[in-house]
Design a binder for these strands. Sequence first.
DNA 1: CCTACCGATCGGTAGG
DNA 2: CCTACCGATCGGTAGG
Lengths: 196, 196
Amino acid sequence: MAKIKSGQNLTKKDTIVSTAALLFREKGYAASSMRDLAEKVGVEAASLYNHIKSKSEILQDICFTVANRFITQLEKVEGSKDSVIDKIETILRFHIHEMIHHYEEVYVSDREWKHLEEPYLTNFQSLRKSYRKRLAAIIDEGVRNKELKDIDAPTAVLIMLHAVSGIESWHRSIQKIDADELEKNMVVIMVEGLKK
Amino acid sequence: MAKIKSGQNLTKKDTIVSTAALLFREKGYAASSMRDLAEKVGVEAASLYNHIKSKSEILQDICFTVANRFITQLEKVEGSKDSVIDKIETILRFHIHEMIHHYEEVYVSDREWKHLEEPYLTNFQSLRKSYRKRLAAIIDEGVRNKELKDIDAPTAVLIMLHAVSGIESWHRSIQKIDADELEKNMVVIMVEGLKK
DNA sequence: CCTACCGATCGGTAGG
DNA sequence: CCTACCGATCGGTAGG
């Protein structure tokens, strides 16, 4: 009997994966045991294997779901007619939004992907590399058409991506402060830093 | 017979700790076994315990050595008469320098400290928090005296620290490119982004 | 979904 | 510094 997976209908596998994201973020992938996970889900460890193939499959699921969301968004931006500055601002806002609204998964995807097994490890690394190259290409375009300062594009990409991923440590305070406030400040500092 | 630890005289413990830093950076603390470490050092696993008390002690050693270097440098900057912009540039350059010249230890200290045991975990977290607060205080001073844009200091600190720690992923390319070139680009983007 | 259990590997110790 | 070994815990399977 195949399950139909629609909007709000979470399968048991979905529950396991998102609970795992929480656990992996807290303790790291390697330090999280399937017994830890089972307890959080509310079943015995052996029962998890009726829904998933292995611990490693959970990590694959998290990493590639996140990666695909970022790639899809990048494609949309690449296809737009916006100025480079606007493109960068859109991407920056998307990263911040993802970090705030899909915190556990994004964090795990960003910090725990090294624990992927082959061939997924190689696949994932090449997605990351490609994402960065395409982002650098956008920045390079801005340097050539004089929208941006004459900066090294890979360095700018490095700064952008890691600045945003740092939101991690502020996540708790973010709910108190204001997500919009954070986003505004971040955009000001980063975009102004690049602008000519 | 007590060992005298002088300039170039590395004890066996030093060798173990710096080999561990390399291993922990590659595989993460939790996924690194004492047998892995022993093999890299060139002894049997049991022999490690003649030089160290536990796996956890190695991590403590790495984290607090790094933390103390950063705190010492911050104190020096706080006590100087430089402008806020110059203070920030000095700190930024110090972070970049540390990341390039003590890569393994700094990386491990930054990403694996969650695996510290109590009371070290709490101690380390409070050092981190204090470092960030003091850095934010410098930025705030710059906002008040109009050297900097009217930005949120904690957000600026977040961006600065994480942008630099991102050098990790570029470490291999850095040797090819040029460390000075990277530093220059980084300083331009970050400092210009903050400047009024 | 559970009980029962597997072989492998973990951090660490004893004793020399 | 090594050999030999410990109890604990790991990811995962069998069988119902």
